[in-house]
């Protein structure tokens, strides 16, 4: 099994989940991962394995996603249809999470990307900056603005603790 085969075999699902959280669409997520794997394979072939292959693939996924969104019509909105699920949580808690998921579609792609990297991947701002190729200050301010958009939602704001 080659390096990239091993990567996909062991981390393909995680990469797909990551891409899904980024874009909110299952089919687009798979397309992003496929595209990222192809780019990674080309690099693997020409210069050898990247130092941290999975991190490299995630970086490619994020940048490819943001690049594609810039090329789309500004009126296009990605809307995710949350599947029905049973939850053991109180209904209010599940409703809040559903609301957050829907409100994420209001964010600009780069804002959503920062939140996914910070709150799903648990990256610090310096690491996020490295993934996106931004200054760390831009990461901070982008996250701040994204959180402000979510806090401004009248439904969420009732249940969220404000500093």
């Amino acid at each position: 099994m080659t390096g990239i085969e091993h990567l996909v075999a062991t981390r393909g699902l995680a990469l797909t989940r990551f891409a899904y959280l980024l874009c909110g669409d299952r089919r687009l997520a798979e397309d992003l991962v496929q595209s990222a794997l192809e780019r990674t394979f080309l690099r693997w072939e020409s210069t050898g394995s990247p130092d941290r292959p999975e991190a490299y693939v995630r970086q490619v996924i994020v940048r490819e996603h943001l690049s594609r969104r810039r090329r789309r019509s500004s009126t296009e909105v990605v809307v995710a249809d949350p599947p029905e699920r049973a939850t053991a949580d109180e209904p209010a808690a599940a409703d809040e999470r559903d609301r957050v998921w829907r409100q994420l579609t209001r964010l600009a792609p780069h804002q959503r990307a920062v939140l996914v990297l910070r709150y799903y991947e648990d990256l610090d701002d310096a690491a996020i900056a490295a993934v996106l190729g931004w200054p760390a200050g831009t990461v901070r301010s982008t996250a701040s603005r994204a959180l402000a958009v979510l806090r401004a939602d009248p439904v969420l704001s009732r249940g969220i603790r404000h500093d």
Binding site: E5, R17, A29, E30, R97, L115, V116, Y119, G159
Partner: peptide, 29 residues
């Protein structure tokens, strides 16, 4: 009251599990 950041973490963890399988990705040789 819920902290928004905790709510985001919970939401992402939950939604990540909407993806239970991955397709057979292909790369060239």
């Amino acid at each position: 009251m819920t902290d928004l950041e905790d709510l985001l973490r919970e939401t992402f963890r939950e939604r990540g599990h909407d993806v239970s399988t991955a397709p057979a990705y292909t790369v060239p040789s």
